[in-house]
């Protein structure tokens, strides 16, 4: 996509992937010589598109574009972790392995989310789409046993700072990048393009 190439698209039909378009783009290799003109090796250009299933986590990624955060809870009465709420979402309880119950924690996130720890970096790996510096926040919620990693889109992170979620509802990517965080009280006008509070 970065090269302006058309990449293939995928849908499923009757439980099978249906692929349409081009999924790889071939380019010729080039030789590598040393300063004396001696052959050292070759380059191997490669451009591929992977097809990835979200499986039971699809509900989480689909809900972000609708302004919702879906978590999971173990409701197995015989499990020592019964009632534990997990965010990141877990399809199955890590203790009893029973299928978890999907639950909406959007309001809980809006009213209780705070920064557990954070990080700021101006150096990122290849393929990073986020504006630099990138600010990670690890967000804890009341009544949730785990801590979610996310991106702070506005302001400077601090520990224990109250944050609220914002969602890429205008043109969702159906990835974790549809969920960002901003400090509580951030005006709507300050949100990145395409992101809303609901």
């Amino acid at each position: 996509m970065s090269c302006g190439k058309e990449h293939g698209k995928v849908r499923t039909e009757k439980g099978r992937y249906k692929l349409d378009g081009k999924f790889h783009h071939s380019e010729p290799n080039t030789p590598i010589f040393n300063e004396n003109g001696k052959l050292m090796g070759v380059t191997n250009p490669r451009d591929m598109t992977y097809v990835h299933s979200y499986g039971g986590e699809a509900i989480f990624f689909e809900s972000l574009g609708k302004g919702k955060i879906m978590a999971s809870r173990c409701d197995n009465p015989n499990c020592e972790s019964r009632g534990s709420v997990f965010m990141p979402f877990r399809i199955h309880c890590p203790d009893c392995l029973m299928k978890s119950t999907v639950m909406d924690i959007t309001e809980k996130a809006k009213t209780t989310a705070k920064v557990h720890t954070f990080m700021i970096t101006a150096r990122t790996g290849a393929f990073n789409p986020l504006p630099k510096p990138v600010k990670f926040v690890n967000v804890e919620f009341d009544g949730v046993v785990t801590i979610l990693m996310g991106y702070l889109a506005v302001g400077e992170p601090k520990m224990d700072m109250r944050v609220v979620p914002i969602f890429n509802t205008k043109s969702p990517t159906y990835t974790i990048l549809d969920l960002f965080w901003v400090p509580e009280g951030t005006p709507e006008a300050s949100l990145p393009e395409g992101y809303t509070f609901d």
């Binding site: 990080m119 970096t121 150096r123 990122t124 790996g125 290849a126 393929f127 990073n128 789409p129 986020l130 990138v134 990670f136 990693m149 996310g150 991106y151 990835t175 974790i176 990048l177």
Partner: peptide, 8 residues
């Protein structure tokens, strides 16, 4: 997707 940077 959050930075593609393990150091973070």
């Amino acid at each position: 997707p959050l930075g593609h940077m393990y150091t973070g």
